[in-house]
């Protein structure tokens, strides 16, 4: 490849995937007090993939920069990315404000310009708002090629990147030259746990703190959440004792 690869890794701090979120009393948001937060699982896959690319193409990858937009505590997940192998990082401190994908993309575009990144790898969606938009929007703002829902990434010797993507009913392969954006799907890799010594070492790696104003971007909300509510509860739990009873019950329910 003619030019060096500078990877940007946007990572989001989200409520841990194993927890069932609780809606607050005013029905405006999710209870966050005393709740465990983690790196968005899809972003964790993105971090793993960046490190893998760097290990397989040592001469090619110049740098890996992780960035997170969130409260001061989002530093914790930047430290994880650093421990896994990112070189440097930036926290865009927005305190507890929710930032919509369009604004996230504008902020990330500004970060891309600062870092001169030419490969951006991020999760296909965050498991809190489940929007599945940021990668595509950022690609649109930058006018870069995009390869979403990646299940395999291959860097060719002719400076192109081939990505196998999950689509409805199968897979599709697309090819592009850098700069480009890749969003990750579950099957791309299996993220490893970080060891404590690596976490300790990561404390010495650079973590720059900025505010959105520093990037010349303002946070403007386009969507108003009028209400947040639990989905209708199912009346489950009935058990039968045999296949015959099961069939009888299904007939009664007019399910067969």
């Amino acid at each position: 490849m003619s030019s060096k690869v500078r990877i940007l890794l946007p990572v989001k701090r989200v409520i841990d995937a194993a927890l069932k979120p609780r809606i607050n009393k005013t029905q405006t948001g999710i209870e966050s007090a005393g709740v465990k937060f983690s790196i968005n699982p899809f972003d964790d896959i993105a971090v793993e993939e960046a490190i893998k690319i760097k290990n397989e193409h040592k001469d090619l990858v110049e740098s890996i920069h992780a960035v997170s937009i969130g409260p001061a505590k989002a530093q914790d997940i930047l430290r994880i990315a650093l421990a896994k192998g990112a070189d440097t990082s930036t926290l865009i401190d927005v305190q507890d404000q929710e930032v919509e994908p369009l604004q996230v993309s504008k902020i990330l575009k500004a970060v891309q310009e600062r870092q001169n990144s030419n490969l951006i790898i991020l999760g296909k969606q965050a498991i809190d708002d489940d929007s599945n938009q940021t990668g595509q929007m950022l690609a649109g703002l930058l006018n870069w090629p995009q390869a979403t829902n990646a299940s395999k990434v291959k860097i060719n010797s002719d400076s192109t990147v081939e990505v196998e993507r999950e689509i409805d009913g199968g897979v599709e392969v697309v090819k592009a030259s850098l700069p480009m954006i890749i969003t990750t799907d579950l099957r791309l890799n299996e993220p490893k746990f970080v060891t404590l010594p690596k976490m300790m070492k990561a404390k010495k790696k650079p973590l720059e703190k900025l505010k959105v104003e520093d990037l010349g971007v303002s946070i403007e909300k386009r969507l108003e959440i009028l209400k947040l509510e639990d989905p209708p509860a199912r009346q489950g739990g009935l058990k039968v004792g045999s296949v015959d009873e099961l069939i009888a019950k299904l007939k009664e329910l007019k399910a067969i």
Binding site: P21, R222, L223, L228, E229, D230
Partner: peptide
Amino acid sequence: RPTYAGNALATVKSKD
């Protein structure tokens, strides 16, 4: 629209 894996349903109004 569902959020949090369908654990919370959000009623969303767009200003666009």
